[in-house]
Structures are given as C-alpha cells and as structure tokens.
Write a protein that binds this DNA or RNA. Structure first.
Lengths: 366, 366
DNA sequence: TGGATGGACCGTAACGTTTCAGAACCAATA
DNA sequence: TATTGGTTCTGAAACGTTACGGTCCATCCA
C-alpha cells in the first residue's frame, strides 16, 4: 500500500536542511534570526518547510537547548473547584497571569490535587520557576518544588530560607479586626476557619491543632485572635473554633450552625474568609438572628460579594499579590538574600459588626 | 578562589552514572522503573543523587525523548483581566482544569494578548494539544495553533475541518429567547453585543459588520435574532445594535445608554451576555426605567450573579463545556472524523422580561 | 593591489534523557 | 551437564534543537 506523504515520518529541522542542501544552523536561523541569512534563502527555507509539512522548530527541543521553558508553574494544592470558585484565588490567578503575560511567559497550572500524593507532576513540569500559593507547609508537593533547581516564590506561606515570598501581615490585619470587635464590646465569640491541615476535620479544633496548623495563614490568624482577646481576659480555650475542609459558603453555613449550637450566647462570629462569612450570614438569617444586632459576623479577604453584602472584613489586594509574585519570579536580577514583599491591608468596617446586646445596654442603659 | 561545590556545573543523569560506575540506563531506571534494578543499587543511586545535588531527571529532556509534554495549552485571546472577571470564562477554565487534573495533565495558559500580534508564544508552548476558546476566527494565534502538529479542540468557534469542537447550539438558544420576547409582544428592540472583531468598535454596528463578525458566537446570535424577528415583520436594519470591546458591566451600562439614546421607544434590550445585561439594568435604573414594566432586559450565559438578579437569560453549562473540551482532547483514542459535542442550554425566564406597555394594553385594556 | 570589513553560511558539540536489544550472571530444572 | 528462565545491568542510538567559533567570499577603500 502506498502511504500518503503525510503519513511518513515528520519533517525535522535536519531533514529540511538536508532537502535544501544547507546546514541546520541556516534553517534554525531562518526561524530565529532572519537577519542572519539572505531574504532569498529564507524564503526558500520557509517555502520548502511548508511543502514538507515542517511545523517549525520543536518547542521542547528548543527548550532543552536554550534551557528556557518559557513558562511559570503554579502550585496550588487546593481542589481546583474551590480555587476557581474563591474570588480571592481567582484574583490572585489573574494578577499572576497578567505578570506572566507582560513577560511573554506561559502559566502552567500543575495538577496537584490535595488527595493525590503523587508528586510526579511537579517533577514533570517544564517550567523556569514556580509560584506556590497557600499550600500546607508539610505538603509533599511543596517539598518537591523546593528540590527543583529553579527559582521559586511562595505566597501566603511561612517564610523559607533563600526563597522569595509575598504576603500580607496576617497578624497585624487580624489584630486590627480583633481590636475593632473588642472595642465594640465583644467578649464571647466564636470562630470559623478554613482547613488547618491536609486531613479533613470538619469539627471543633482543639488548641493543639490550632497551634500545629499546617496552613500558615490560618494559624497566624487564629494566634492573632487568641492573643488579642487574651488582652481583655478572654480565655481562648473556651472559644469555640470550628474548621471546614471545603472552602464554600455551604461550609460557612454548617460551621456557623455548629458554633451557634455549642454556644448560642456568642455575640460575634469571626470567619477567616469572606466565603465562610457569607455562609455564616445565611445561617444567622435562618435562625432569625439579626446581623449585627443579634450577631456580629466578620470575614477576611474583601471580595466584591462581601463588599456588596456590607460585610465587615479585611481587604487584601489579591490581584496585586499575584502580580507581585509573578514579578518577583520573573525579575531575574541577581539578589543576595531572599526578597519579602508584604502588601497592605485595610480593615473594612461594614454593616455586619456592631455592639453586642450586653454592651449596648452599658452604653445606652439608664 | 575556591568555589563551593554548589557552584560547579549541575549534576546530570550521566554524571551521576559516571560517579556510581553504572550505566545511564540504570540511573534512569532508578527513577522511572524501580522494579528494574535491585533495591540496594537503587538506594545507592538515590543517595548519591542527593549527595551530588542531582534533582532528578530533567523534565524537558524527558519530554524531548518521550514526545510527551504532559500539558495542555489553552489559547484564549482575550485580555486576561476580562477572562478572569467573566464568571462564564472562569467556569470554563474550571471545567477544563478539572479534566486536566483527572488526567494528570498540566494546563498551560498561553500568553496571547489580543493586541500582541506575536505568535511566538504559540510556537514556544511545550504542550501535547491545544484548547482554543472563543477567539476571533481570523486570529493569527488560532492559525498558529492549527499549524502545530498536535490535537486541538476548539470551543465556541466555527467548526473547522478535522478539528474536534465543543459548543452549544447558539442559534437554537437565541431563537428560543427571541420567541419568548416575540410572544410577550416585543417588536421594537435594541441589542447590546460583545466585540465582533479584533478591532475596537464601541459603537453602533452596521449590518455588514454584523454579517462579517469574526466572533462566531456573537455572529450566530445576531443572525438568529434577526431571523426570528424577521418572522414577525421586524426590519432588522432598523434595530439598533451596539457593540462593546471590553466585556464589563461598565460596557453594558454605556452600551445600553447608547441604544436608549438612539431609540427611547424600545421595549426590550437584548444583551448577548449576562455581564452586559447586568450593566444594562444599572443603566435602566439610572434612567428611572422599571424592569420589566418599562424595559425588558435579557442576557446570555446564566452566571450566578444573573440568577440572583432574576435575569431572563439562557443558561449554558460552562463548566461542562470546559470539561468536555478537556476530555475530548485527552481522550487519545483514534477517531476518524472530527467529533462535535453540543451541550444543552435552557431558557431561564426571570423577572426582567415582561410584556411591553403597548402589548399590556392589548391584554388588559377595556 | 593589498588589506580590512562584514555578510552569509557552516560543522561540531552539546542539551539530558529514554529506549531497545541484548549481555552477563545465577539458580533451578531436566 | 546442558538448558531454561529470570533478574540485573549495559551500550549505543536516538529525540530535535541551538550555541559557538569559525570559514569563505565579495566588496570597499586607499
């Protein structure tokens, strides 16, 4: 059977050069450095390439030779569904994508689901650097990234020696939020937080688990809350803290319910993300609790939906965070010590925080 | 000056083999096929690797040899900001990312801004296939993708010979929407659509430009509207159609204003996306027009925000679209003719469509 | 006419890996 | 003892490209 010309072994730069009777270098130059050969020869090369079905230099072979992949890897060990549904994560992604686009670099989403222990995807990623966004500090994927000999920027992670990082001052931001609540008079509070480790624990969080939390951001916020409320005599051990693995409004609802079931007397429910807070508001409404008269609810992030809802929260510049991470990674200038970028946050006092009933009596009482 | 051992030329599989006095094959096997060598030797290999700082097989070299990049390229020639701000696009991305994750493949966002004529990024992308999402049919990036000898799936694009595609029946969906409005009695309408070509034209759209629109989806929807309204005697040439380059609610606002300025008598404003429709509602409110009593507004996509707003729209399964595109691309089974996946849509009649004033008089008059 | 200049092109040597067919060895079987 | 079968390891050949350091030759100027 005669084979069509298409079916034969695909053309390469070398075969094209042979066909033309020129050197491989010349063919390479025809694509990469048009000024290095005569226009006439270049035309012939390109025409012959078309005739032979040569699709141009193979990107992988090129990468091998030039030692440049032209892409940045993004590691976010989060179930991708949640990542794309969390406006804060999407904003980060947008910022990072913009930085990459500006630099003409691709952005590779590395397939690393939390369940999958398989680190091979990290090894297989052909990238010039990694951005690691909010993964547990004991995640094997993170370890695998750090073993790769490429620059890395971590974001919302504990600082690592000799690795650049981007983040906010979670402690200061949380402290400001806590002070706001303290000044309003809240002393009996509950907390809803995101997952604290790689294992699922949709339940109350013992002090030990809070202290050993593997998500740096969550741990820092909890500690800051504990410290702030300690200054006004609140025993943190008595504060109900509930954790949710899935980062959804539904989680916020059920977690709020769990806290309120345990201690119906709390006057404020502090959530470590807006998504959770929005769910908590739903649950409050379901119980006939008015916000903020009966219950103060706060979030964290400052996503648009929270703003619309008038949520008291901490706004953080998520897009800038992504952009900063990208810039840091792509700015290849030599730098001795690791660079740290800390972005500003802003306490947004909305309509969901107010004085607790008891405090209100003190203020407005006889 | 003595150099630290770190500064010397990085270790490779070959140098590691030399150090150990074994063949390269054996070292390769130590990483990729542990069952092919004795546990003892494997331990030695891995230990020596650690000592020499060998980070494991280079992913690019591996890709060159295996002819697998382990990643899928996504081409969306849209300003990335708008892509990440459009819930429909994010939903698509989520679906595609899920499909890739399931298959253990990476997802590479190819940096191709609409302004940038530079197609090099497409050539440079080390991927096993491409997904092309809603780019103009004359986009040079698309042409570059089609020249690459890798499988491709196009989405929301005109069908291309021998290329798989995913989409919805835009014509049928739009026709259903138009019929709904026609049955309500609307005859005098205005249209707000997304951009129709690579050039910016934030203005009214002549018939010719509608017909020659390079965005398949927009073109199809406009044609379907024209045909549907033609059946009830509406001369499409008299229908104000306004285009906006940027896909934002602000665009929806200004476009609605432009239409209403031109013809304040219209009873329905049809927008080809929910984002635009939400903006149009804002503008209607600003003018004191009640929706739907004074003005009917419709969208397209069925994003959550539209649902909350009670928008009359067409819901399309954006996540499924992304997932289907990914599955199609990654299902490497040989298939003769190109595959076409058409997903179902649903007309959502919300609170933003009603009878026009004139029609209402007919119904409820004396 | 000699020498300098610069454009056009070339040959070789990597880049770091996987694959494939087999070699060497050893134990067990006939 | 010869044969078989299995495990463990090897050598050489790709995979397709670009970097580097040239050579060659026509042209220009003095």
């Amino acid at each position: 059977m005669a084979r069509s010309t298409n079916a034969r072994r695909p053309a390469t730069l070398a075969s094209l050069a042979a066909e033309l009777g020129v050197s491989r270098t010349t063919v390479s130059n025809a694509y990469n450095r048009p000024d290095q050969l005569s226009p006439e020869l270049r035309r012939r090369v390109l025409e012959t390439a078309r005739r032979l079905g040569y699709p141009g230099p193979d990107p992988v072979a090129r990468s091998l030779r030039t030692r440049k992949a032209g892409a940045v890897g993004l590691l976010l060990t989060e179930n991708l569904s949640y990542a794309f549904r969390d406006p804060a994560a999407v904003g980060f992604l947008e910022g990072l994508a913009l930085a990459c686009e500006d630099a003409g670099q691709g952005l590779l989403l590395v397939p690393a689901s939390p369940e999958r222990e398989d680190v091979a995807a990290v090894h297989r990623a052909g990238v010039d650097g990694f951005v690691v966004y909010s993964v547990p500090d004991d995640d094997p994927h993170l370890a695998a990234v750090l073993e790769r000999p490429v620059p890395t920027v971590v974001c919302d992670q504990p600082e690592i020696d000799s690795v650049d990082s981007v983040g906010i001052d979670d402690r200061a931001a949380t402290t400001a939020l806590a002070r706001h609540l303290i000044e309003l008079g809240h002393r009996r509070i509950g907390v809803v937080c995101m997952r604290l480790g790689r294992d699922r624990n949709d339940d109350f969080v013992p002090l030990e688990r809070q202290r050993d939390a593997h998500f740096h951001v969550q741990r820092t916020r909890l500690t800051a809350l504990a410290d702030a409320f300690a200054t006004v005599g609140v025993d943190w051990a008595t504060v109900p803290v509930v954790e949710r693995f899935d980062h959804t409004t539904a989680s916020g609802e059920s977690a709020a319910a769990q806290v309120l079931d345990r201690d119906p007397e709390i006057t404020a429910l502090i959530c470590t993300s807006d998504i959770l807070a929005l769910g908590a508001m739903t649950e409050a409404g379901r119980r006939g609790l008015r916000v903020p008269q009966d219950l103060t609810v706060t979030g964290f992030d400052g996503i648009p939906e929270a703003e619309r809802a008038g949520l008291t929260t901490v706004r953080q510049p998520v897009l800038e965070k992504g952009r900063a991470a990208g810039r840091l990674l792509l700015d290849s200038a030599e730098h001795g010590r690791p660079r740290r970028v800390t972005l500003d946050t802003e306490l947004i006092v909305g309509r969901t925080s107010g004085q607790p009933r008891a405090a209100a009596q003190i203020w407005y009482g006889p």
